[in-house]
Design a protein around this nucleic acid. Structure first.
Lengths: 253, 253
DNA sequence: TGTTGGCTGTGACTTAGGTGAATGGAAACC
DNA sequence: GGTTTCCATTCACCTAAGTCACAGCCAACA
């Protein structure tokens, strides 16, 4: 039998089927009894605390993981020790798919705040997918979306100015952090400036400088990790590099 | 019936099953009759000439495409018209998977030389995958590998110097262009300097200068698009940023 | 066989963003 | 509640890589 949820040995176990956030993790379109079958295969572990590692680059790939709540960063380490953050993950995002082809996790994933993760072993996934076509479609969609997002990042890192990168980053975060697809005005960034800089291929000083500048131009209000977007249109214009630019900081503001 | 190979209306149709390069395109592990079924669903179109577009960004996603022979570049265009090359594809590489989630191709793919492509409609893929598990595994592997490759590029664009990017690029090309997995000494690059620069997030002058410098340091011999790697170890060391560096060009060589 | 046009290479100069150093703040930990 | 530590910001300066300009080269085509 493939079902191996020996949950009772751990705290905080609940079935997906009774979980209020179920629609974030499980694919839509499962029939009632299918849902129950899948639900039984998903493990709910004790939440990870800030700084804890969820996967380690190079470890054996065993499971797909869906972020249920919290916030995760993932980074690769190059041969000479340079780190590059390759993604931030929040509710509903899937970790680990890069391990399918190699059998090893391709990055280290680390919780940026208390994070709970739902785990489905790949063997169980394969069992599900062969019985419930919707599961198969779900994973293909997930991976296809990851490919698109990474290609968008390639465009950012390859062609965009520091200011464009920051603007796009803030817009993306604002959009993703709202439950719906519409961006929200005030966001609390769970990651440090160092992480933002690393993700965007910049240094931390540049991120600081540009946030200050965007604030001086009345586009943002920045209070450490809490950022309010005061002029969405201009921020979007900067992100798209369309016409109007943000004035550099002349020392007389 | 899902099979819709109305091949005879076009030139150059052959069945995969009789194609000498079959092992590059079709997954391994299909049984004889399965292979034949899949083979019948694959369309072989007239080859694309240099400069012809294979997919257009935004067009409706219908099919997965495997490069059979030739060479393809793919690029995204941002809202402000900037282009970014996101990949180069050669024999065995799969185009179009980013369309699965959105229903539209995510980039424009263009032949860099005469290129033939084998096409499998996604509907036929779904039919195959539900009957032959090995097909499903094949697509997951393909997509997982694309995610890994793109993440490697993120590391390149985010953290590496121009010289490291060039070195890594040449090593990657040399490895991929050899039939086996071992790198070969002399490669003929099918893409222009402009394409290389764009792919690596540099300008064309920088690419020229660095190739010249690598030649002056006896690491390469560069004859326009034909490049011979004379000192693989040092090139690898530069790619990894390990210790020894390449001397800048002092005007007295 | 001349001409066209896109590649490729070089040099002089500029600049966006990186470096390094120093300061102030918040939160975490006795 | 004091101290430690990490995080964020700011400034002065520097450099890797971009820009601009020009020249040679090769392939395609008439």
């Amino acid at each position: 039998m493939l079902i191996d949820n020996k949950g009772s040995s751990r705290q905080l176990v609940e079935k997906c089927i009774t979980c209020p956030g179920m629609r974030h993790c499980l694919p839509h379109g499962l029939k009632g009894n299918e849902m129950e079958r899948v639900s039984d295969m998903v493990k709910h572990r004790r939440p990870f605390q800030r700084g804890e590692q969820i996967t380690m680059m190079g470890d054996e790939f065993t499971s797909l993981m869906v972020v249920h709540s919290g916030f995760v960063k993932s980074y690769k380490v190059s041969r000479d020790g340079e780190q590059q953050i390759v993604g931030f993950y929040m509710s509903g995002d899937v970790l680990g798919v890069e391990g399918i082809s190699t059998g090893n996790y391709g990055y280290t994933a680390e919780a940026l705040e208390t994070t709970s993760v739902c785990t489905l072993s790949f063997r169980n996934y394969e069992y599900c997918s062969s019985h419930f076509p919707v599961m198969q479609k779900w994973l293909l969609n997930t991976m296809s979306r990851q490919i698109i997002d990474e290609q968008k990042m390639l465009l950012m890192l390859g062609k965009m100015s520091a200011e464009q990168r920051i603007a796009n980053f803030l817009l993306d975060m604002s959009r993703r952090m709202s439950a719906s697809g519409t961006s929200i005005q005030t966001i609390r960034l769970p990651m440090s400036r160092i992480d933002i800089a690393n993700y965007l291929g910049l240094v931390v000083e540049t991120v600081s400088r540009l946030l200050t500048r965007l604030q001086a131009n009345d586009i943002l209000i920045v209070k450490r990790r809490v950022i309010s977007i005061m002029d969405l249109n201009r921020l979007q214009a900067i992100a798209d590099n369309s016409i109007e630019d943000c004035h550099p900081l002349h020392h007389a503001a």
